[in-house]
Write a protein that binds this DNA or RNA. Structure first.
Lengths: 208, 208, 208, 208
DNA sequence: TATGAATGAGCCTTCATTCAT
DNA sequence: CATGAATGAAGGCTCATTCAT
């Protein structure tokens, strides 16, 4: 209702103005740039302010709002992107396997997941434990879901004994997650991954 | 969005006067009171604003700063206290045990830890995942340390096979932690604890 | 509160691309188009944002500034146009009249004015009570001036008794104006116009 | 959710700080001061920004929010105050009158109203035609209501002939209002009031 | 001419922290 | 010791206006 009060020079109706800086990108590219910059900035600093991103992107604050209605929207987009990337890398790794190959694949997947989370850096907290945390993730993209699928597969192949898949998936997720955190904080990767894999083997695999 | 309830009479928008009176209190007692109140408030609401605490303690905002230089200092003190309390409950549970009794105790301890974390409510996030998260915890108080001690004890008794204690302690911590989170978010306690215990048994115990 | 609908695909939050193509147009025609569109938009929504107008005109935002140095300039032009239109409709209605026909015409004119203002819709506030309000109106175009002329004519014909024409014109203007506002806000037209006409008759006409 | 990021000096947890200015008033007094300042500022400039008021009151911007949740709340309070003041001055002026005295009083009241509105200055627009405009006014306080009551009284006394009171009240309001506006814009008070009173007499009073 | 991405001043609101009483 | 009014840095969002293409 209240019109923004741009001041005019009394009678002349000439707006006062000041200097500017620089410009222009294809919208898709700019959005991409913002997303990428945010990815980088949040990854490094777990940053939180819109200005942190626009500054890093060397762009005016207002530009942000041309592409995202709010910070949370950006986070959602970021999360989407991260999940998508992970999902893409996971495709079709589990077709046509027997017990043995499944076990090897399973361990490899666990390690891959750990490395992926480590790579997320500050993104992890921002995207999965911050303001966005309670916003639902498309079921088929969630890590828990992927892990559950992995386990189910193992059970079907007889590679691991029957167990409470949902609950176990949650636990396995926590284990991978924790391992990643430790590595991210400077722990010895080999050692951590080793202990983790041993745990997985003892816990899940049939004594056979 | 959430409207502050502090000061306005809904209708008249006339400021309300709530009389209060200086109440001298022994400094130690006052500090105690603030800590206890904060404990309660943060536990319940995961509260965030200093005023939430002082209001609940029926104390002026400024009083807070007489006892804590900043909100973070309070959090540190709170965490200290929580850890202390947990440590106290843990004392001397492991003297004079054999393999069998150790295993039973170990499981019981795990469950107790889970329940403890669940009981923390909002404190958990605030103290262990918030602004304070990266501030170091006195080594001998940390859950990790206690867990490591527990494991070491088990190894010494031959109840569990030799393993990388530090790393394993971190993993076990994550497992307990995750279980607690799930319960706190409404998961079925029996089921979660059951799966967790099974994992612990398979992972740690000697096949004997 | 009102969310801009400009740019986001509700769900995906992916920016939408609406292709548009340069369309050269005779400058006069383009300016005309903008004015007409603004007229319509402001009339309907009492709109405020430049973008509302350019969007409705299916023209780029920047184009606006090719034809108007600022929003206020547009408003001034709009007002000019509205006044002109009204003036045109008023031309030559008062030639060759006697007392009786003048009185009838006068009342008709009052009603016409009221209806005109009602028809302005959102324009009314924007043009006569908004940012532009204090900018002077070309004397011979102002409603006040026209009303004064009408009155003067009546006095000359002896249809109404001598009075302070300028001042009375202001008052009459307010009366018509107010009546229009009431109607615009949903008041009963017949009733309002009726009372208004009665007032005019009693106030102005010679007891004869 | 997101805790404000006050920066601490790394380890020491000592907040950085800067200079300040000055202080303290009884809340009632401060609220009063803000209201009075706003009254003055809006009256003069028809101002709109919170900062205009706080600056004039030589108070920090945040202080405003200690007493009013938003600018609109302030406006409501201001309007309330203005109406109350007017109502108070109107009390009991119409008891025990006959036709003649009523007419005199009526005219006096009209003039008083005009002067009152003139005195409002920029407040008038801000309080009755701005953001607050659609918020309902307590019926018994509205100018229209008071005017209607006045007219009804006159009809009962036989001082004026029966008419459509509600509609007429609206019209009379507009007339007073317009007269006030003219005066506020520098018109000759005597002349304007004179014409207005003449109108009122001719319109309303019985030819008797 | 036309376009629409980019800019940044302007205004709002919150809340940790200070300090007069 | 205690109080709570006052402060102002932070950060969010909008939109008139500019300018590279």
């Amino acid at each position: 209702m209240r019109r923004r009060s741009v001041r005019y020079d009394g009678d002349t109706m000439t707006p006062k103005r000041v200097a500017r800086r620089r410009r222009r990108l294809d919208p898709r590219a700019r959005r991409e740039q913002l997303l990428a910059t945010a990815m980088r900035v949040v990854n490094r600093r777990g940053a939180c302010r819109i200005e942190d991103v626009t500054a890093a992107a060397r762009v005016a604050k207002g530009t942000f709002y041309l592409y995202f209605p709010s910070w949370e929207h950006l986070l959602v987009a970021l999360r989407e992107r991260v999940l998508e990337q992970y999902a893409r890398e996971t495709e079709n790794k589990f077709s046509g396997m027997d017990q043995t190959s499944w076990r090897a694949t399973c361990e490899a997947e666990c390690v891959r997941f750990v490395d992926f989370v480590v790579g997320l850096g500050g993104l992890h907290t921002a995207l999965f434990h911050g303001a966005i945390a309670d916003r639902p993730i498309a079921e088929e993209r969630s890590a828990r879901h992927l892990i559950a699928r992995l386990l189910r597969h193992g059970v079907e192949l007889g590679a691991i004994e029957a167990l409470d898949i949902e609950t176990s998936a949650g636990l396995l997720f926590a284990i991978l997650h924790s391992t990643a955190d430790e590595i991210a904080q400077g722990g010895n990767r080999e050692r951590l991954v080793g202990v983790m894999c041993q745990l997985v083997r003892r816990w899940l695999y049939q004594p056979s």
